[in-house]
Design a protein around this nucleic acid. Structure first.
Lengths: 235, 235
DNA sequence: CGGGATCGACTGGTCAAACCAATACGGCGA
DNA sequence: TCGCCGTATTGGTTTGACCAGTCGATCCCG
């Protein structure tokens, strides 16, 4: 490890950058162990406290992993892991519910398309199981909502795209707030069950077009149901 | 601020989560000032060192901003700002970059479709201006990159969907890291100029289909250019 | 001789108290 | 009124101590 003393000011910031560069430059490989804090602090010419601030920052970003009593290691650096904190960016927003349907329409239909060509047998089995559970919970709105969320999440996962999964889980968190308002509407539950079955069938057939269309239709059903209820409320 | 003592173990981790929740729940607004470290540490029931680790982590993620001698503030929370630290992800692996292309393909083509039906004359003028500036900067990669980003951002804004704009500005910040790898490739600049002109023309005509197709074609060009470079590197 | 319990060295986690350094702000003087 | 300066306040860094897990070698017992 190439290490040079760090000037006293902005020491923590520079320590972060230094370590990050070592990781980025592959001088520290995924899974590799860092020197002990006391030793690394000495090498970098900063105090242990300052170094710990730097390490903590990188741990929170899932670039490093600290194991109490053992040591600090470079994480696997899987995109899935590194993308995790990214979700925060979207979950910040709150004025979003109005435009949520549009975003879901864009993202989820395309997710369904991608999933159609990548989903494997095991995942299709999982979708079938969720459908069965949904049927069984036909009269339990709470349970139905959970299965709803589970189904959509499983489809997104089948895209195998970590970034997309992160973005959708952010959007999904927002969607949850909206869904609690729509699931209770008369007829929506039954319609959604049928829609979901159609989506899964399309995924099984492997047709991207059919899967996308089925998802789009589903979202449209929910949206119109929500819109009409909003109108009734206004009346 | 609602604060409760934190159990001694995993104190730093919990302090991060606590503050993050306050920000996410808007109990701490963008630009708002946090209590002084010594005071906040007392409120959270942790030592100042531990609290500083938490604060440092959030500073590195651009969620907080510390000003020496002044105080610690919540950042503007602009998506571009929050996404910046995660450019690291893209630079780490080409795999992540491919995921990013996929996400852009999904989102930006749909943005172009939406924009086609909502864009107004003033925005089209702006796009024309950007195109002209791009032409003028044909031989200045730096400038060309800026205009590239500007054009894509303008199209996204034309969707008039705040949530979509938010998500895309996060994705756009990530894309920045990738674009620096692609802009310099021979032929890409010229191809992109032509692609951009075609996209703007489609938007002017108001055809959602044409706009989406033009955007999809553009992204595909860039992706294949990158993929072929990656192959050359491997050879 | 084999295997399990034990102990100690090492590692990260937390705390405390002090001092440095930059900023804000109020009072003072020109 | 304007500008300077001092002081209180705030973040930045350091040091040293102790707590709390983990690992591995050693020791003892069966």
């Amino acid at each position: 490890m190439s290490t040079q003393a760090i000037k006293r000011s902005a020491a923590a910031e520079q320590a972060v950058r230094r370590i990050q560069d070592l990781v980025q430059g592959r001088e520290l490989a995924p899974g590799e162990r860092l020197p002990a804090e006391r030793e690394l602090a000495r090498q970098l010419g900063v105090s242990r406290s300052t170094l710990r601030e730097a390490i903590r920052a990188l741990v929170v970003m899932n670039i490093l992993v600290s194991r109490h009593g053992d040591g600090t290691y470079v994480s696997s650096l899987e995109p899935e892991l590194l993308a995790e904190p990214f979700q925060f960016i979207i979950s910040i927003s709150d004025e979003a519910l109005l435009h949520l349907f549009e975003v879901r329409m864009v993202l989820e239909t395309e997710c369904a398309r991608l999933a159609a060509s990548r989903i494997d047998a095991g995942e299709i089995d999982e979708l079938d199981r969720i459908l069965q559970d949904s049927e069984a919970a036909r009269d339990d709105p709470e349970e139905l909502l959970d299965r709803d969320v589970e189904l959509h999440a499983a489809i997104v996962r089948a895209t195998r795209n970590p970034l997309l999964i992160r973005i959708m889980s952010g959007v999904g968190a927002l969607a949850l707030a909206g869904r609690t308002k729509t699931v209770g509407l008369p007829g929506v539950a039954a319609t959604s069950l049928a829609d979901h079955a159609r989506i899964v069938a399309a995924l099984r057939s492997g047709s991207a077009e059919a899967a996308g269309a089925a998802m789009a239709a589903h979202l449209e059903h929910v949206e119109t149901a929500f819109a009409s209820r909003a109108n009734e409320d206004a009346a």
